[in-house]
Amino acid sequence: MTIEFSLPATLEAHEPPEARGLGRDGVRLLVGERGAGRVGHHRFTDLPSLLRPGDVLVVNTSATMPAAVPVPDSALVVHFSTEQLDGTWLVELRQAREPFRDGRAGTRYPLFGGGSVTLRRPFSTGRLWESDVDTGGRGVPGYLAAFGAPIRYSYVGRRWPLSYYQTVFGVTPGSAEMPSASRPFTSDLVAQLVARGVQFAPVLLHTGVASLEAHERPYPERFLVPRPSRALVAHARAEGRRVIAVGTTAVRAIESDGDDGWTDVIVTPSRGVRHVDGLLTGLHEPRASHLDMLAAIAGPELLCEIYREALAEQYLWHEFGDLNLILP
C-alpha cells in the first residue's frame, strides 16, 4: 500500500525521549480503532486502560546487538544484518551514514581485532551483500560485543549507549536494530498490564537492518515461536479475546508457519493475518513495505486517517519516536 506524504525533519525523533525530559513510557500513543473507525490521542502510559483483561500481547524477546563495525583506516562501516542458513551473513556497507554503492564481489574488508568481511555476491542491488565473516573464532555476537556500536542513521545526531537500544523484553542478542515498538515498555508498566489481566506471548525474531531509504521487501530472518506462546494465542482467539502484536517483527514471527527457522513471510492485505487482531507499532516511512502489513490489520481507510492525524498533530517518527496502536 502506498501512502503519499513528505516527512519533515522536524517530525524525526533525533534523540531518545529521555533526552527530551521524558521517561521511556512518556511518548505519545495514537490509537486507531478499526470497528469504530475513529482515532484518538493518548500517552503511552495510558496503555493499561486501553487494553482489556484477557488481551494477549505478542512480544519479541530479541535483544539488540552493537551491529555497526568500522573498517580500519577507512570511512566505511559494516552493518551486520542477518545470519543465513548456510552460515554466511547479510551485511551492508555505509559511508558517512549513507549507503556505499561501490562494493565489489570478492572484496575483503579487514575489521578490528583481526576480523574481516569478504563480499560474495549482491543480495539486493547496491545494498545488502552475502558475505563470509571471519571473527577469529569469537562468533559474530561475541565479536560485535567487543568491537561494535549500535547502528545509527543520519537523523540521530549523536551516539547513544547500547542500553538505549534495548527493550525490557530483549533477552537473546541477535537483532541488528532494536525491535522499537517495545522500547516504551517499562517494568512498572508491564506490572500494571499483568495486574489488569493482560497476558504476554513471547516470540523471537532477530531483525536485520531496515535502511529506511531502500523500502525493500523483507528478507529471511531467524525466528522462534515457543509452543506455549502458540497455544496461548490460539486459545485466546478461540475464546474471542484480542491478540495484539507488539511490533511488525512480532507479527512476522507469529504469522510464520512452524515453530522455528528462517521466515520469509510477507503480510499484505491480500494475504491477511491469521493469528493477530491488532498491532502496536511505530510510524513508518512513506512507501515502506511495512505499510502493507499495517493495511492488512487496520484496513486502508483507517490507516490513511492514522497517518493524516500523525502528521497534523506532529507525532515523531523512527525508533525513538511515538507509537501507534491499531485495535480491532
Rank of each mutant, 00 (worst) to 15 (best):
S62A: 03
C304M: 01
E301H: 13
V168T: 13
N324I: 13
T248L: 05
V117S: 01
V58E: 08
G35C: 11
R274E: 01
G272D: 07
V168G: 05
R20D: 12
R196T: 10
A63I: 00
Y219K: 09
V194R: 06
M65W: 00
A195G: 12
P226G: 07
P16S: 08
D46W: 10
G114A: 01
R222V: 15
A19L: 08
V251D: 00
D260F: 14
E221S: 01
Y219W: 14
L162V: 02
R121Q: 12
L85N: 06
G197P: 00
T172P: 03
A312C: 03
T186V: 03
A96C: 08
D322I: 07
M178R: 06
P220A: 10
D46C: 13
G170C: 09
G321Y: 03
D322S: 04
E213F: 07
T118S: 06
T135F: 02
R271N: 00
G174Q: 08
G282A: 09
D257W: 04
V56Y: 01
A191E: 14
A191R: 04
F112L: 08
P8C: 08
T281P: 11
D322F: 05
V56H: 02
V69G: 01
T281A: 11
L193H: 07
V251R: 03
L212Y: 12
D259W: 10
T172L: 15
D264I: 00
V27C: 13
T61I: 14
E92C: 06
P17K: 02
H14W: 13
H42D: 11
Q314T: 08
S124D: 13
Y165H: 14
